[in-house]
Design a protein around this nucleic acid. Structure first.
Lengths: 194, 194
DNA sequence: GCAAATTAATGATTTATTCAAG
DNA sequence: CTTGAATAAATCATTAATTTGC
């Protein structure tokens, strides 16, 4: 639909502007419904809303669909930004209750099974008295994790103890391997000079 | 207009099976089109394909839409997995030409401006002779980055030198800060015992 | 005041991830 | 485990605010 590049009318007007421009009334009613708890309307609800709002100006079902998608997404985005700022400011330790990033089943990058229990038990290992101090007073290290599909790496910040991050067990890849000699697999340690 | 994926509530009850089950002929033809280069059909193309394939069995436009979406996504996913496996197997150093992850403008999590030039100059700092050795023989450390919006952290792996990761300059957030006394800001060093 | 130039909002698409049927 | 379906996240693109120099 690029044949009419001239941006004709604002305000939901007729001529086929390149995108929907909601009227004040439409936005107001949409926001009221959203705040009322309607986050993901069904197709039926979308159609009802569309016809109810069409008396205020041109509108299509997909406009309503997109509006709710975008509004929800941008709400979450704002929330994430706020949480992130708080975490950075206070240097909090992300827990399972308040994760900095969503905590999927986690594991080290080289061998999931080895790292996962270690990481999950971290908080337990700490003397319960010093936990809070460590959480607040120490800079945090960053660890790379892989999601459970092994496709998407993500990070979480952990208190800097000396620990073995990469067990470096060889992964069982079925590809050709004659080109490189296996490196001596040194262990990488992270230490903190606090 | 391209396809508008307005959700269909699937009614759930009665009528058809709960999800589309493509016939062999349908899959074959879809794959032929895909390999022929059609990755994201337009709404018009989807309708044409749908009617052409409907002679082999029940099919809807949204089935075709989803098929192409999923096929494309899973192709990319397979590629990513392969690349990731190669990187891990060979322990390659991700460069700007072959990044392990997309390289946006990067920076440390605490203070972007301080980290960015350091990171960008890493390769330059290395003696050009030992670059390859370091790239191949060392396990890589992981650093947390923030994307250009400051919203999404992501990781990249870097050769383990001893370096200052978190300068820990105080960020200028305008919120109240009387609750916590500022920590002594120790520097966190990462070292490698190769 | 007033447009050209920037920046911020937000509608629309595309891509990634997750869920669940078989 | 595969894969259709659905949702969420990321991205693109256009429009409204706004700044800026005149």
């Amino acid at each position: 639909m690029t044949s009419a590049p001239v941006p004709v009318t604002t305000g939901g007007g007729g001529g086929g502007g390149s995108r929907w421009c909601p009227t004040m009334d439409q936005v107001m009613l949409l926001e009221r419904m959203y705040r009322g708890g309607l986050k993901t309307p069904t197709a039926t609800q979308i159609q009802q809303i569309t016809s109810r709002l069409s008396i205020y100006g041109k509108i299509q079902g997909k406009n309503v669909f997109y509006w709710f998608q975008n509004h929800k997404a941008r709400d979450r985005q704002k929330l994430r930004k706020k949480l992130m700022a708080l975490y950075q400011q206070r240097r909090l330790y992300p827990t399972h209750d308040h994760p900095l990033l969503p905590l999927h089943p986690i594991g080290g990058i080289e061998d999931v099974s080895k790292c996962k229990p270690m990481i999950n038990n971290w908080k337990v290992d700490l003397p319960s008295d010093q936990t809070c101090k460590l959480m607040c007073d120490c800079p945090l290290m960053t660890m790379m994790m892989m999601d459970h599909n092994g496709t998407t790496p993500y990070c979480t910040r952990v208190p800097p103890k000396t620990l073995q991050l990469f067990p470096l067990t060889t992964t069982d890849l079925k590809e050709d391997d004659q080109s490189t000699t296996p490196p001596p697999n040194p262990n990488l340690l992270l230490t903190c000079n606090v």
